[in-house]
């Protein structure tokens, strides 16, 4: 293990905390459509620190959970999360994964792309697509990115996050 990098146990611990936050804290917050998606934060944090194949499998699993809990079109969430996680894992070769703003940007982009892909794959109308593209998607992406930044700041020693922007 590289010094300063999250070990597997630490990563699993953070992912478990995020899962609990998603199912216990998020319902207590405001409207569900624009509340932070902690599962997507967990997926992006994991994807940016693992190989593309592992990230794709994790994305598929997270998407399957989303499909089971909100089965508007089964498979849409799995498809979207697989694509996003695989792309995020390849993206770490291009961007600096230890930069806080890069992490925030990757999380926001991941949530927004996930929402757009889900809406398209589930056969939404033009009105729904425009609303998701321009209103709800960016709002949820921004809020989720803020939540991700707070989490990374809390565990910055484990993830070796650089604070110099």
């Amino acid at each position: 293990m590289t010094v300063g990098r999250a070990s597997r146990a630490q990563l699993v611990l953070v992912l478990a905390v995020l899962a609990i936050l998603h199912f216990y804290l998020r319902p207590r917050l405001w409207d569900a459509r624009v509340s932070p998606d902690f599962l997507m934060v967990a997926l992006m944090v994991y994807a940016m620190r693992s190989r593309p194949g592992d990230a794709a499998i994790a994305g598929f699993a997270i998407g399957l959970i989303a499909d089971a809990l909100s089965p508007a079109r089964f498979g849409a969430g799995a498809l979207a999360c697989t694509l996003v996680a695989y792309a995020a894992s390849w993206g770490r070769a291009v961007f600096f994964a230890d930069n806080l703003l890069v992490n925030a940007g990757m999380i926001a982009a991941g949530v927004w792309i996930r929402n757009v892909v889900v809406v398209i794959a589930s056969g939404a109308s033009q009105g729904e697509f425009i609303a998701e593209l321009g209103i709800y998607g960016p709002l949820q992406a921004l809020i989720t990115a803020v939540a991700g930044v707070l989490l990374l700041l809390a565990f910055r020693e484990w993830f070796a996050i650089r604070l110099d922007v």
Binding site: R51, P52, G53, D54, A56, I57, G59, F60, G63, L64, D67, A68, P71, R73, F74, G75, A76, A78, L79, T82, L83, Y86, A121
Partner: peptide, 26 residues
């Protein structure tokens, strides 16, 4: 990695084009 990605992608597409009753059952 590529094989894992393609398998996950294929499973997602299979789930997407399954009959809705099967998807709801799963």
């Amino acid at each position: 990695d590529t094989v894992s990605f393609l398998v996950c992608l294929g499973l997602s597409l299979v789930g997407l084009f399954l009959p809705s009753a099967w998807g709801e059952s799963i």
